[in-house]
């Protein structure tokens, strides 16, 4: 128990100390997860909307695939991305392995099933009458999709929140494809693993608390936005 108390004290101390290495780690965590989240949103929300709105013949199969993807172990994604990006792999010429780009790629794969799958579910929950009404009012197809997405916004935001939560806390994939290189690819989660490995539990707890605080802050902001969206 003592570790928690000293860890908490150390967390506060760390944040106040303005240690540039710590801020670098936090900043990189936010960057990697932020970029991955945006890409996963840009890909996932339209995909999810399309799947939810239109009669796709293989929808059942795709749904199963998406739901399976939600349970994909990050380390498996990491291994897959690692082999793809390795210099002796098919995309080796990109030179992405052990860089933040590789970490973003892995996190996009982890987040995509969540944004797409949950958007699909949210869109399916919208009353079909709304679409008919929109069409009757002369909406173009794009306007129609937008109307439905707007109606399903709470679910869409939930999809974003779920995706964010799964990748900001993810360690298996970023460890493997990023390599936990100091000052280059070390993020909060991999730093926690490193400090646990070396027995520096207080520092690990401190970093964990910082990660929690960040997630709390961002989810709080999302909730406020969600509330505003409802009003």
């Amino acid at each position: 128990m003592n570790e928690f108390v000293t860890g908490l004290a150390q967390a506060i101390q760390l944040i106040l100390s303005g240690d540039p290495a710590l801020y670098e780690i936090i900043w990189l965590s936010l960057q990697v997860t932020g970029i991955a989240l945006v890409i996963a949103m840009l890909l996932g929300i339209p995909c999810g909307a399309a799947l939810g709105l239109y009669r796709v013949r293989t929808r059942g199969f795709i749904t199963v695939l998406l739901y399976t993807g939600m349970g994909l172990p990050p380390v498996v994604v990491g291994l897959f991305v690692y082999l793809l990006l390795s210099r002796s792999g098919p995309l080796g010429s990109l030179g992405w392995l052990f860089t933040p780009s590789a970490m973003v790629a892995a996190q996009v794969i982890i987040a995509f099933p969540l944004t797409a799958g949950l958007t699909m579910t949210a869109v399916q929950g919208v009353d079909p009458a709304l679409r008919i009404q929109a069409r009757a009012l002369g909406a173009t197809q794009l306007q129609e999709v937008w109307t439905v997405l707007t109606e399903a916004r709470i679910g869409v935001i939930a999809a974003i929140v779920a995706a964010f939560g799964s990748i900001i806390s993810e360690v298996g994939a970023v460890m493997l494809v990023g390599g936990n290189i100091e000052g280059k690819t070390r993020v909060l989660t991999t730093a926690i693993v490193l400090n646990t490995r070396t027995g520096d539990f207080e520092l690990a707890i401190a970093l964990g608390l910082i990660l929690l605080a960040i997630a709390f802050g961002i989810n709080g902001a999302m909730l406020v936005l969600q509330r505003n969206a409802v009003d």
């Binding site: 540039p20 290495a21 670098e24 900043w27 990189l28 936010l30 960057q31 932020g34 970029i35 989240l37 945006v38 949103m41 860089t99 933040p100 937008w146 707007t150 916004r153 935001i157 974003i160 100091e182 000052g183 280059k184 999302m222 936005l225 505003n228 969206a229 009003d231």
Partner: peptide, 29 residues
Amino acid sequence: RFSLLLILVLALVAAVGCATATPTAVPPT
């Protein structure tokens, strides 16, 4: 409101993303 919110979230995350190239350029402390 919703479109505003979406744009806001996108902008926020994009802003974070903008400096993407910098971590590799910044000398490691």
